[in-house]
Simulated assay, not measured.
Amino acid sequence: MTGQAARRAEPALDDDAAALLAAKAVELAKASGLRVAAVVVDAAGQVVAVRRQADSYPTTYHIALAKAFTSANFGRESGEMGRLLAGVERGIHITQADDRLLFIDGGCALVRDGVLVGGIGVSGASADEDLACARGAVEHWVTSR
């Protein structure tokens, strides 16, 4: 084939939706007085959008990315994977095989029409608070489409 490169018909998770997801997660955090970062990745775990409050810890980005990556990789909440692997000997081997995985609450899978399209991760508060912000952003995304 010569000429123009082939283009995808439609991105599974477009940049506008990803930006809105990240912004909503941070908005929810701010409303609760929390300082967080939110990262949205596509189904391959590649970053599509980031929103980090300037006064959040510098490490919040990396932790949120790991939660988002874990959720996109497994199609589940990041903390749920941790609970599923608890007590499973091979769980330790999974984390040793890919250090981008993080099995604590705060990451949610993004599913459109039954298809995994990515993940969102939030970090900076408690794991429960991070998860509430991620879930709230996902709920907003699902109901506003």
Rank of each mutant, 00 (worst) to 15 (best):
V88W: 07
V88D: 13
L65R: 15
G87W: 03
I92A: 12
L85C: 06
K67M: 15
D99T: 09
V88Q: 10
A97E: 10
M81V: 09
R90M: 11
G75W: 04
I94V: 13
A72D: 15
R76A: 06
R76L: 14
E80V: 11
A66C: 09
I63N: 02
R76M: 06
G75V: 00
L85E: 10
S78Y: 03
R83N: 13
A64F: 14
D99K: 07
H93W: 09
G82I: 08
G91L: 03
R83C: 01
F74A: 04
I63W: 00
S78Q: 07
K67R: 06
D99I: 11
L84K: 08
R76Y: 12
Q96G: 13
G75N: 05
A64D: 15
M81C: 15
S78A: 09
G75Y: 01
G91V: 07
M81I: 14
S71A: 14
E89Y: 09
A86M: 04
D99W: 10
H93A: 05
N73D: 05
Y61I: 12
F74Y: 15
A97F: 01
I92H: 13
G79T: 08
L84I: 05
L84G: 03
T70E: 05
A97K: 07
L84S: 10
E80H: 05
K67I: 03
A97W: 09
F69E: 00
A72H: 04
A66T: 02
G91Y: 03
A66M: 14
F74Q: 03
I94N: 01
G87F: 03
A86N: 11
V88Y: 14
A72F: 02
I63D: 01
Y61P: 09
T95I: 13
T70F: 04
G87T: 02
N73C: 12
H62E: 12
H93I: 05
K67N: 06
G82Q: 06
S71H: 06
N73Y: 12
L65A: 07
I94Q: 00
A97P: 02
I63R: 01
H93P: 11
I94K: 00
N73I: 01
H93N: 11
H93Q: 10
G79S: 00
T95D: 15
A86L: 05
L84C: 10
N73G: 05
H62N: 13
G75D: 05
Y61L: 09
A72I: 02
G82Y: 09
H62I: 12
N73L: 13
R76N: 12
K67S: 08
D99E: 12
F74I: 02
F74V: 10
R83P: 02
E80G: 03
A66Q: 06
L65S: 15
G87I: 02
H93K: 15
M81S: 01
I92T: 10
D99L: 08
I92C: 11
K67C: 09
R83G: 02
T95P: 01
T70G: 07
R76H: 11
R83V: 15
Q96I: 06
L85N: 12
R83T: 13
R76G: 01
A68C: 13
D98A: 04
H62R: 10
F74N: 04
I92V: 14
A97T: 02
R83K: 08
F69R: 00
L65V: 04
T70V: 06
L85V: 14
L84D: 11
E80K: 05
Q96S: 15
K67F: 12
G75H: 08
T70C: 01
